[in-house]
């Protein structure tokens, strides 16, 4: 669906508390257009729980159960079970969580909910750090990135939660990025119209966390995909396919140099030539594997 044809309903109300240029709210606006009114969000501690603003007001126009940091998927399990008993399975329980609450502290609950075949959608927006608490490293933080707990750059490579989720063999696993709204919308819509456990991970470049100008949020997401640092894919009942620009790369288009993307982010300012070589060769290796599959 073209951008101009996307639904006009707004479930995220203006005047919310997000930073200017926040990728989370771009993603959320689009996702909610696909999910619609019959959605119950379960939101663990993360930027979104603050973006809701302060009691007694909320910036979200769908029901939200805020929940403890590690518990989002367990919360969605409870909502899903109750909806089934109440004969309200036309309502979709959706977790809306950051990478912190998904990759790290929330991974146990996520894995359990997936393995149990829970009827819900889990959406992880990934800004590659604990942004809500002020830019600390997470399991999703990439190699070499500055954070307030990795002042000289993270020494480890990030996990890939999408791969871990795929190992649970659920009906739908997909990745998206805010720079490709049609692709994101289509994926959320497809997930909504399926049942069982569905997982989406949305790439969300964060201006204060990654140190770039707030007007460049969409550009950062685009460049991440164009350099191959972030991959757009969709796996339906075990059949994996790359989508959108990532599909083009797989089919032969050259990836833009990764340095172009790294250079634009203050969090990578401390990378040495050696670091960049490491990142480059690891990325090349990954894409060679993708092409070999």
């Amino acid at each position: 669906m073209a951008i101009k044809d996307l639904p006009r309903d707004e479930y995220l109300l203006k005047g919310h508390a997000a930073c200017p240029g926040c990728p989370i709210t771009v993603a959320l606006r689009i996702a909610l257009k696909a999910l619609g009114k019959k959605t119950i969000l379960v939101i663990p501690a993360c930027c979104s729980s603050v973006i809701e603003a302060l009691y007694p007001k909320s910036a979200f126009n769908v029901p939200i159960l805020n929940i403890a940091f590690e518990a989002a998927a367990a919360g969605a399990s409870g909502v899903s079970a109750a909806l089934k008993k109440l004969d309200k399975t036309d309502i979709t329980p959706v977790v809306w969580a950051g990478d912190g609450g998904s990759y790290d502290i929330g991974i146990q609950a996520l894995s359990g909910a997936l393995e149990r075949g829970t009827n819900f959608i889990y959406i992880c927006y990934n800004n590659q750090m604990y942004s809500n608490t002020g830019i600390q490293r997470s399991g999703a933080t990439p190699y070499g990135a500055w954070t307030t707990t990795t002042w000289t750059g993270k020494k480890e490579y990030q996990k890939e939660l999408g791969e871990i989720v795929r190992a649970h063999h659920i009906p739908y696993v997909a990745t998206a990025a805010i720079s490709y709204p049609e692709d994101l919308y289509a994926k959320v819509l497809k997930a909504k119209n399926m049942s069982g456990p569905r997982y989406l991970e949305i790439f969300a470049p964060c201006p204060p966390g990654w140190r770039f100008d707030m007007s460049k949020t969409i550009e950062m997401a685009r460049l991440a995909v164009e350099t191959g640092a972030w991959v757009l894919y969709e796996e339906i009942d075990g059949r994996l396919a790359f989508t959108s620009y990532s599909k083009k790369i797989l089919e032969g288009r050259d990836r833009k140099p990764i340095e172009d993307w790294l250079r634009l982010q203050g969090r990578f300012r401390y990378l040495t030539e050696d670091d960049i070589k490491k990142i480059k060769s690891r990325l090349d290796e990954k894409w060679n594997q993708y092409k070999a599959r």
Binding site: L13, Y55, K57, A59
Partner: peptide, 12 residues
Amino acid sequence: ISSPTIGAMGKT
């Protein structure tokens, strides 16, 4: 319990 409100964070 909070209610959906436009301008929840004020006139941003």
